[in-house]
Nucleic acid binder design. Sequence first.
DNA 1: GATGAATGAGGTTTCATTCAT
DNA 2: GATGAATGAAACCTCATTCAT
Lengths: 219, 219, 219, 219
Amino acid sequence: MIEKRYKEAFERASEARKEKILEVGIEEFSAKGYENANINVIAKNAGISIGLMYKYFSTKEDLFLTCIHRGCKILDDSLEEIMKSNDKILKKAERLIRTTCYHSKKNSNYIRLYNEITSERNPELAKLIAEEIEFPTSRKYITSIAQAFAKNDVRQDLDPRLFAFFLDNLLMSLQFSYTCDYYRDRFEIYTGINVDEMDDEQVVTQLLKFIEGAFTFEK
Amino acid sequence: MIEKRYKEAFERASEARKEKILEVGIEEFSAKGYENANINVIAKNAGISIGLMYKYFSTKEDLFLTCIHRGCKILDDSLEEIMKSNDKILKKAERLIRTTCYHSKKNSNYIRLYNEITSERNPELAKLIAEEIEFPTSRKYITSIAQAFAKNDVRQDLDPRLFAFFLDNLLMSLQFSYTCDYYRDRFEIYTGINVDEMDDEQVVTQLLKFIEGAFTFEK
Amino acid sequence: MIEKRYKEAFERASEARKEKILEVGIEEFSAKGYENANINVIAKNAGISIGLMYKYFSTKEDLFLTCIHRGCKILDDSLEEIMKSNDKILKKAERLIRTTCYHSKKNSNYIRLYNEITSERNPELAKLIAEEIEFPTSRKYITSIAQAFAKNDVRQDLDPRLFAFFLDNLLMSLQFSYTCDYYRDRFEIYTGINVDEMDDEQVVTQLLKFIEGAFTFEK
Amino acid sequence: MIEKRYKEAFERASEARKEKILEVGIEEFSAKGYENANINVIAKNAGISIGLMYKYFSTKEDLFLTCIHRGCKILDDSLEEIMKSNDKILKKAERLIRTTCYHSKKNSNYIRLYNEITSERNPELAKLIAEEIEFPTSRKYITSIAQAFAKNDVRQDLDPRLFAFFLDNLLMSLQFSYTCDYYRDRFEIYTGINVDEMDDEQVVTQLLKFIEGAFTFEK
DNA sequence: GATGAATGAGGTTTCATTCAT
DNA sequence: GATGAATGAAACCTCATTCAT
């Protein structure tokens, strides 16, 4: 778990200001990447001085990690909303896919930020962030699949953890394909259609079939 | 298609030198990422002067793109080797998975380089690279699936391009999980096992089941 | 003479607070030197706000000067104690040396602060501080030597002021050698023994011989 | 012993340039102290770019240490010149004092730099520098005194190392008194005469008497 | 009197790129 | 063709000082 990466002064700041700083930070980091993001720009856009920024965060890295924490919380909240239902696993998958297709624009910055993280090259940091982000998500998937397994809703020869992993791989890739430049181009190369003009319903339908088959079929 | 990003002088250089420069460049870019890679260091490690490096490439970006071109060729060659066979689609998938699991170390630099690309934030560049890399791969997958579809080897309600896309998403995610820090940690969080100590055979078996089900099952 | 460098508000503060501020200031300045000392840290450690600190002192320099004033008073008090006696000059020297050797730890902060001052590079300020510190000390030495001279206790071809100067040079160097990093290392290089493990009695004996000879011998 | 603190590129620079950089560096460091010295200013005054400065020295600290090394070499050379003679110890002392009084202006920067060092607050660094500077000097003094001791030229109850230490304390203090602001003021307070207007001959005479007595007198 | 949030100038350091030889 | 010395813009970060409350 990432311990808090902000200083006490940040806690004391007004909600509006905290909000603004993280929003602007997420904007900058997701747009330019960690290296090219400029703290001075973030401070200016957030309407505070650079000195105050450093009263809030010791380093650029700490600001980045706090932005990630925030972005993840938002993504995890919407995941929680879906996964806590009593729907069957495939129903949940459908809702996840739909959310990705229809609402990815609203959260595009968070997703791009997440994408930025995945090429993090500091191993210790990568580990921290991975635990922060992936642990809650993975538990939700694994638990849902294990329950479905217990109820015989899915094939009995699957390994819940690996299948959760494969499922998340598909959803993660889809998320990126709706928001990140490179993945968007890749989507178009595969499908022949720009993701903005794509009939989302077809993507939903096909991916659901894919997943349904994967979880259901048993020789 | 990426037009050539090197200068004429580079073409005139000896094969050994060209080889060395790109090898060292891939090493540096994959280890540190584009921003943190140092072109002066690459020149030194490649045994040439920085001045000569700029006789070969106009900018750091051009060197990067040429390294990518080279890395992709190597990855695409091994893909070609597998896809040109007459094996059935699932057999091909199996070979792809095995290659990923068992041989990812040999090509880990290329894969990390590929991962680096996916967070490229320059839209025009992203497009160029995506076309360079994804087009050949996608054609192979789509064609294979279309052939299988024609032979009734796979379910008849699938869209070949989307299913090719989903398939590649799974394989791409797996590749990253074997080589890139963040994805390796993520793998361990899902499976509970460090990727280096994982029984690859189980991954192969489960992913194959997943894909087989996805391509086979039909309500 | 240094005019007061604190504001009226400081005079009105409680004794305990004044004490605390100067104590903490001396601690910080002597530990890190003027440039690296942080006035915000001093305020925090003294338990007052930085705003109040600036109600008490106009600038960092003023706080520094007030700390010096305080440190010097303490050192001068212990000097006064020794010099006011009716002992002969060599007896006084012995007591000074013993005080330096045996009690330097108690006053080490003040001595390090004094050392910091000696590299002051603002000429006007240097002059002010020198007068503040050196004048009282020098008078005591000069007077004592002049009295000894009058009583024929010391050689009759000495210049009291220069001999006072040389004497203080020896005592000052010894003080630094017991408290300041660089001078402590220097001491060990000369004597071969770490100052903390040195038999102080030998230092006392030898330095006394040195001084006694210097003041007594006459061709 | 300080290992070299410059990079290879510095060795390859022309003698004139190396000279210039160190000269300008010593000037700046001795005038403003380590903290307030500005590397950009040094680079500009030395006629090179800041980038090149960092090709020569990894950090400000390294430049500082190399300047010290250079300054010490010059001071040590002139000491060597005096100490290698066959003169008796008191004759050597006389020459040292005269050099200090008459020629201290020429080397004033080096001496101020030396003064700066003595308030160094990084213990490891202090140790390195002390060994670099004090070791050669101390050996010369100790050896000379030991030889004089063997020849019965000095009192037989002295400890050569401690007396060498006291002797150097006197000479060091005198050096500072001729060159460093604070010590110059202190000198005037003790003697009543500004060091620039002082009759050096009197200082020489008196200090020689002091030292002669110290080394000769024996109860 | 007392607070501490806020400022912003200024310093060190990096590295892609140029160009004289 | 080949070298590598040289450049300088730009980024991160510190801390003395101010001022509204």
